[in-house]
Simulated scan of single mutants.
Amino acid sequence: MSRSVVYARRAAAAVALGVLAMGCQDTSPEEAGATAGTSAPGPTATASAVPSPSPVATTAANTAEVCREVDRVIVAGSRRIATDSAASVSWDLTGEQVAEQLRRNLAELADDVRAQARRAADPEIRALIEETADQIDAGSRASRPAAWMNSTFTAIPPRLTRDCRA
């Protein structure tokens, strides 16, 4: 097996596993309770029920939901990349076949992320998610997609964690 094939497989798997390990966003206890359909007892629950006077509350109608879904989509795509990279060893693929498989996975991930951008009510969040999908699309067209993942893909989850929130 050539060194480039081994490198491509290891790089894709390492990056995908890194994204899985780090996750994209932390869910606060308040969001976790809201997601589960419950709220914390006592005065805190009453205080959180008071609408915020900030304009973010009205412009970010579904931002938290869309951002969580983008996180889920990226983690699922990373899992798919890691699984396919590991399986490519038994499939005895060439380096170019491994790269093409990775390009297909990235193109599919970009489409999934772009679908979430269309759902975003907040135009800034929609633009952020569309830009993320465009970045992932660029990786699907890269001549060395595994190298692109090491240099660019790894920066996407921290950026979403920082910028994709209500």
Rank of each mutant, 00 (worst) to 15 (best):
M1A: 14
S4L: 12
V5E: 13
V5L: 07
V6K: 08
V6L: 13
V6N: 04
V6C: 03
R9T: 10
R10W: 04
A11T: 08
A11Y: 05
A12V: 05
V15A: 09
V15D: 01
A16D: 06
A16M: 07
G18F: 04
G18D: 09
G18T: 05
V19Q: 06
L20Y: 01
Q25G: 06
Q25W: 01
D26K: 12
D26F: 10
T27W: 09
P29H: 11
P29Q: 09
E31H: 09
E31S: 12
A32T: 12
A32Y: 13
A32Q: 15
A32P: 00
A36T: 08
A36L: 15
T38R: 11
S39K: 07
S39P: 00
P41S: 12
G42V: 03
P43V: 11
T46G: 05
A47P: 00
S48G: 00
A49P: 01
P53S: 12
P53F: 04
P53Y: 01
P53T: 11
S54L: 13
S54N: 13
T58H: 03
T59E: 13
N62W: 05
C67E: 00
E69K: 15
V70L: 08
V70D: 09
V70T: 09
R72M: 02
I74L: 15
V75K: 14
S78K: 03
R80G: 02
A82T: 02
T83W: 02
D84H: 11
S85Q: 08
A86M: 10
A86R: 11
V89M: 03
S90M: 12
W91D: 10
L93I: 05
E96A: 14
Q97S: 13
Q97G: 15
A99F: 03
E100K: 10
E100Y: 01
E100C: 01
E100V: 03
L102Q: 13
R103Q: 11
R104T: 13
R104N: 07
L106Y: 02
A107T: 02
E108R: 10
E108Q: 12
L109S: 06
L109Y: 04
D111W: 01
V113M: 07
V113L: 08
R114K: 12
A115W: 01
Q116V: 04
A117V: 07
A117N: 07
R119T: 10
R119F: 00
A120H: 11
A121I: 06
D122G: 03
D122Q: 12
D122N: 15
D122A: 10
P123A: 09
E124F: 05
I125T: 15
R126S: 14
A127Y: 00
E131A: 15
E131G: 15
T132W: 04
A133M: 03
A133G: 07
Q135E: 13
Q135W: 04
D137K: 09
G139Y: 06
R141Q: 14
R141K: 12
A142V: 06
A142Q: 05
S143H: 07
R144H: 12
R144T: 10
A146M: 00
A146S: 15
A147G: 05
A147R: 14
A147Y: 07
W148T: 04
N150C: 08
S151P: 00
S151F: 10
F153D: 06
T154Q: 12
T154M: 14
A155Q: 14
P157T: 10
P158W: 05
P158D: 02
T161C: 14
T161Q: 14
R162W: 06
C164D: 02
R165N: 12
A166E: 06
